[in-house]
Design a binder for these strands. Structure first.
Lengths: 151, 151
DNA sequence: TTATAATAGTTTCGTTACTTAACTATTAAG
DNA sequence: CTTAATAGTTAAGTAACGAAACTATTATAA
């Protein structure tokens, strides 16, 4: 048996085990925090937070947000609708392609997101205290690798 | 200003940015895959998959699963109920502390989970193809760090 | 040109995934 | 021995989805 092939297989297996014991609890915890921070202070559901976050990050349409979240367009359409009604988002028809609705944060939406991010950042920062620069750099590199795995 | 302090701050900031652009899409994609694989083949919702996964990983009570998922006990209680009715889980009263209900997979539950995991593993493994041993080892180390951040 | 297909978004309707509040049963602590 | 804490459930309501069917618009191709 080829040693390199075998050990590569073992590492893949190891990554999978670590993945299951790390990512779901990590995500669950962040999710729980967002629910507490965003929901209570700003009356934002986690879903609404995610939609606003992605639009803030440059996604400009229902389809783009849906693709990024890996959920269906109707789900995003509904979330967007609520956010427009709450004055956090605008939906304007594109002149060149009138099927396309351009999504954008309002001033109020931007302010809300800044505030939520600030609170979340402070919380996450406190979790990172006590870790060495080396460890954190390593985490950054790992995230790059993981991101490449998403195509 | 202390250089090490400044650069530590910058790294924390960097980790946060990477986190937001990596973890939610990663999790969303895995989630989407679970929905497709577990739901269609085995009629398991994502929530049910998560509950079974945690019990398989050693969580033995509604409270433990709820804590691990960062959601409320009633939510887990209901999910467990459905799984018991479907014959994937057993709920037996603990003799020493009769408030406590011991949760355990049935043979059918174990088989189902093995099958779902096998399918998911194959899918994830295909995503990891093309990455070097070094990169994957780095991911493992990073997951350890992240796990420590969860206490 | 005009069908036809593809794309962007929405509406409707149903199901599932939660939450909060109130409840039972049991054990622990004052 | 009563009060508090813990484990779990039930009930009722809401939000977060998905599937299917629909409108409007643009692209393709006959």
């Amino acid at each position: 048996m080829t040693p390199s092939l075998t050990s590569t297989k073992d590492i893949a297996e190891e990554v999978l085990d670590r993945f299951w014991e790390t990512v779901p609890p990590l995500w669950g915890q962040v999710r729980g925090h967002i629910r507490a921070a965003a929901a209570e202070k700003f009356r934002l559901s986690e879903e609404q937070f995610q939609v606003l976050r992605l639009i803030r990050a440059g996604k400009g349409s229902v389809s783009q947000v849906a693709a990024a979240r890996h959920i269906t367009r109707p789900a995003i359409s509904q979330a967007v609708d609520a956010l427009v009604q709450r004055g956090l988002l605008t939906r304007t028809q594109d002149e060149d392609d009138r099927r396309h609705m351009q999504l954008a944060l309002t001033d109020s939406g931007r302010e809300t997101m800044d505030a939520v991010f600030k609170a979340t950042r402070a919380w996450m920062r406190s979790r990172m205290a006590g870790f060495s620069e080396r460890e954190l750099e390593n985490v950054i590199r790992a995230m790059e690798t993981l991101r490449k795995m998403l195509e």
